[in-house]
């Protein structure tokens, strides 16, 4: 059953110099319920642009995106979005940030327990009352993840949530995302630069090429979970992806 359908999506703009630019061109793919899909491709190939169209933050000039049959025209709480760069509110504490969405949706008596649960899962205990600029980048990114997850979205869009993290923290957050996906079976689309990350987490990997952004190939990734980063199958998949990425 196709859950999310991206049909002929094209995004074109006039940039600041008045030039006409096609950012992404005729993108087609679909995602089934509960699936984990990764988007990889070189910087500037339109990954963020595509993700924003799926969330409804931007509307495509051509084509459409449907979720469970309904056309997406604007953002919604049922589609979580973790931004590439810090989007936590600097004027709210970590706890207030994580609660901010659920508090608006559920009102004053929102589910505190769920907030506590995610604070614990993300390893943020002891930093609940700190402000974002007082915690590490890794913690801030985990808090942003928690802020989306407490809303229990149907679809979670992740725009390089580990992009700014060091190798150790990166693996931590990857494992948290993996664990949550296993438990909740939330459909996830992850944008990443990191091939290993894509192989470790996702069931299919969509490779994009730039200028304009197009789908090059969708690679199936059938390795059994949990995956071992040093298994020979893992390394084979990585080789295959590298070939696709390097092939002009």
């Amino acid at each position: 059953m196709a859950f999310l359908k991206v049909k002929n999506v094209t995004r074109e703009i006039f940039n600041n110099n008045g030039q006409y630019l096609k950012i992404i061109d005729d993108i087609n793919f679909s995602v089934v319920d509960g699936e984990f899909l990764s988007l990889i491709g070189p910087s500037g190939c339109g990954k963020t642009t595509l993700l924003r169209v799926i969330s409804g933050l931007d509307n495509p000039e051509k084509g459409e995106v449907t979720l469970a049959g309904e056309k997406i025209v604007k953002p919604s709480v049922s589609r979580g979005y973790v931004f590439q760069h810090g989007s936590l509110y600097p004027w709210e504490t970590i706890r207030q940030n994580i609660s901010s969405g659920i508090q608006v949706v559920q009102g004053k008596n929102f589910n505190q327990k769920l907030v506590d649960y995610f604070i614990e899962v993300m390893g943020l205990q002891g930093f609940e009352d700190a402000y974002p600029n007082q915690v590490s980048g890794g913690m801030a990114q985990r808090a942003a993840l928690a802020r989306s997850l407490v809303l229990n979205p149907q679809l979670l869009l992740l725009d390089e949530p580990m992009g700014a993290l060091d190798a150790f923290t990166r693996v931590d957050v990857q494992n948290i995302i993996y664990k949550i996906w296993q438990e909740k079976k939330t459909t996830m689309i992850l944008v990443t630069h990191d091939i290993d990350e894509a192989i470790y987490l996702s069931q299919r990997i969509l490779v994009m090429t730039p200028h304009p952004g197009r789908v090059k190939e969708i690679v199936k990734n059938d390795l059994p979970f949990p995956r071992k980063r040093d298994s020979s199958e893992f390394l084979d998949t990585r080789k295959k992806l590298q070939q696709i990425l390097n092939f002009k």
Partner: peptide, 16 residues
Amino acid sequence: PTYFEAAYTLGFNEHK
């Protein structure tokens, strides 16, 4: 702008 966009995905209405 990201702060407004985050607000939209978190279900904020104009008042919020």
